[in-house]
């Protein structure tokens, strides 16, 4: 019941969509009713098209995201927290590199890596790297220096200082970047798959569009949005477990 109240508007929107197309206010050729879209999702599942596409997209997005997180978080924490003299040196190059558009890179990476999985994973990782890196950097740079000093006074060594003080203080900011980059990962991947791929949800969108199967276009859009919601929800569960974030905090974490 609580769920219904919370998602009342979503349900109302879907009902409106259904009603408008069924009653003929919108052309059903261009706007298939929501029930038809759901039917086509089930149909795609049954004929075994959707499953492989979803798994292809998810594996690319998650491996790129994981790569970016593994590189970005430690690098950002180290640069922001410890090697502050490197800040001046790295500031401008990082600013310039962060502006290199992933889709420009795509064309160049294809020359290096060939077609296939690796350029797609690479551009997802490239896109996800920057929010993660900058937010860990700023998170570590904004740790209260008094805390660090008192940690030093208690005789903490570098690793213990990171584990006990810098990490807990920077974690919420780092988490902001991680959440944003998870959103970016799907976002960029779908676009990359629409540009050049032979599997994945983006490919499904573009192929259905070319075949004028609009119900399938809407079906893939719905599936992609749903996947985004699920991934975001999973990240929220992780955040609640490890950082004790409340839902209100979590929803506003990106736009704080």
């Amino acid at each position: 019941m609580k769920f219904c109240r919370k998602y009342f508007c979503v349900l109302a929107f879907l009902l409106l969509w259904e009603a408008l197309t069924r009653l003929g206010f919108l052309d059903a050729l261009f706007f298939p009713p929501f029930s038809v879209v759901i039917e086509s999702i089930i149909h795609l599942f049954k004929i075994g098209t959707l499953g492989p596409h979803i798994s292809a997209s998810l594996s690319r997005a998650l491996s790129g995201f994981a790569l970016a997180t593994i590189v970005g978080v430690p690098l950002g924490l180290l640069l922001g927290g410890f090697y502050k003299s490197l800040n001046d040196v790295l500031e401008l190059p990082l600013e310039v590199f962060s502006q290199i558009n992933p889709f420009l890179l795509f064309h160049i990476l294809i020359l290096f890596m060939g077609l296939g999985e690796s350029p797609k994973i690479a551009i997802v990782a490239w896109t996800c790297l920057w929010p993660t890196l900058f937010s860990s950097f700023n998170g570590a740079a904004q740790v209260n220096p008094g805390l660090i000093k008192s940690g030093r006074a208690f005789g903490l060594r570098r690793l213990a200082l990171i584990r006990k003080i810098v990490w807990p203080a920077a974690a919420p900011t780092v988490f902001t970047g991680i959440r944003l980059s998870l959103g970016y990962s799907l976002f960029m991947l779908i676009a990359a798959e629409m540009m050049g791929a032979s599997s994945g949800l983006g490919f499904l969108v573009i192929r259905s569009q070319e075949a004028f199967q609009l119900d399938r276009v809407y079906a893939s859009v719905v599936v992609i949005a749903f996947l985004g919601l699920i991934l975001d929800g999973l990240l929220f569960i992780l955040g609640r477990k490890f950082l004790s974030l409340s839902l209100e905090n979590y929803l506003n974490v990106v736009i704080e």
Partner: peptide, 21 residues
């Protein structure tokens, strides 16, 4: 508060797949 969930879902929809629409 009521519309929030709907708008967040809209925000999650990939603009690039909306291109055909």
């Amino acid at each position: 508060a009521k519309v929030d969930a709907l708008l967040r879902v809209f925000g999650l929809i990939n603009p690039y797949c909306l291109f055909p629409v």
